[in-house]
């Protein structure tokens, strides 16, 4: 029972924050991570921030994923799905 996704904190209003990911916005509760700040990447579960993403490790992962997405996009433009 662990579906949780990364979002970015846009605004903080008391015990809640407006978080954003992929253009989707949602108010989330930050009572479990009181030191969260605007711009932080956070993990959301059932409407709550349960943890902040560590910027260092996240950057590494993101760089890898950017590479990967670039590779995927190249593939989308030039490649053809063979469905096989």
């Amino acid at each position: 029972m662990c579906l949780a996704i990364p979002m970015t904190v846009k605004r903080i209003e008391g015990t809640r924050a407006l978080a954003e990911a992929y253009g989707v916005e949602k108010y989330v509760d930050i009572v479990m991570t009181p030191d969260v700040a605007v711009g932080d990447k956070v993990i959301i579960h059932a409407g709550f921030v349960i943890e902040r993403l560590d910027p260092e490790s996240a950057r590494e992962i993101e760089a890898a994923w950017d590479e990967y997405h670039r590779a995927m996009n190249d593939e989308k433009e030039t490649g053809r799905p063979d469905g096989a």
Partner: peptide, 16 residues
């Protein structure tokens, strides 16, 4: 999963 999981977890969440 070090980008999310700290060795000691989230003490505030456990306190609640």
């Amino acid at each position: 999963y070090a980008r999310v999981v700290r060795d000691r977890g989230n003490p505030k969440a456990r306190e609640i």
